[in-house]
Design a protein around this nucleic acid. Structure first.
Lengths: 140, 140
DNA sequence: GTTTGACCCTGTAGTGACTACAGGGTATCC
DNA sequence: GGATACCCTGTAGTCACTACAGGGTCAAAC
């Protein structure tokens, strides 16, 4: 199949597929007489593997490691487990940070309820006072 | 004060301060005889304003808008409110996505409990099957 | 008087994972 | 023969920095 069909089948942009090839994640396929890429079933599978991992928030470098494991099935899978654990911890930490962020934003947002001149706006007042080093509701 | 002191006072990297100047967020200060930047109190305040907004996850483009509001105090603050609302929604959406992500990762992680050859590893097996289009626990 | 070290300058390139062209070639249908 | 849809390479842009390279300035210590 050609790149456009592969893209359609995986829900991936054509440019992204070429990018994965350039990055060494997806094997370069053979070319037809016109110089077009001709993909086989294994490319579809590889690309779906990559997209699946990406949908789990993994980085390309990590996916490269996982692809290696797939191709060397007798390696100890400890690294796979550690990789996933690291990813889980990363997501948990980001969620915690975002929770704090959301609380801060809501507190700041509550400073202004009515439409008014920005000089009277509680949000702007709070941001200005915080810039002067005073306490703000959003950071305690 | 010179850039190093400003950096220390705000917890901001020297390069970041120069970057904000280049991006037009922080006014260019006057230079002394050696060509060094000499900052005043207002620069400290501006930088703290910027860093405070950044700590709330706002983008530089949004901070630029907020800085404009600060300097035009008789503008209607409606846009400030909308900007904050958009930021809150963005964070909420990201948190929801991360929650789903975390659940998917945990389900995948549960596929492997013991250390073994990667060919036997439940995580690798699951990823491989998913790449073949089969159902995976992480995506239902 | 020179050397050391801390500070400052400009400018460019790199990060990650794409995305968006520009400028061209190819294939197929009408 | 022309329109359209597809494909190619290569480069630049995104965002908010970060990390140099290669140089200048200044004060204190030796």
């Amino acid at each position: 199949m050609r790149i456009g069909l592969l893209a359609k089948r995986t829900g991936c942009e054509v440019e992204t597929i070429r990018y994965y090839e350039k990055e060494g994640l997806l094997a370069a396929p053979i070319r037809d007489g016109s110089g077009y890429r001709r993909y086989e079933g294994r490319h579809l599978e590889d690309l779906q593997f990559i997209r699946h991992c990406r949908s789990l928030g993994m980085r390309l470098a990590e996916i490269r490691i996982l692809l290696n494991f797939r191709d060397q099935p007798h390696q100890d899978c400890e690294q796979v487990n550690r990789l996933l654990d690291a990813q889980i911890i990363r997501v948990q930490e980001q969620m915690l940070a975002m929770q704090t962020l959301l609380e801060q934003l809501n507190l700041l947002r509550a400073e202004c309820v009515v439409r008014q001149q920005s000089v009277e706006c509680g949000i702007m007042k709070t941001l200005n006072l915080a810039a002067k080093g005073e306490k703000c509701p959003c950071h305690e």
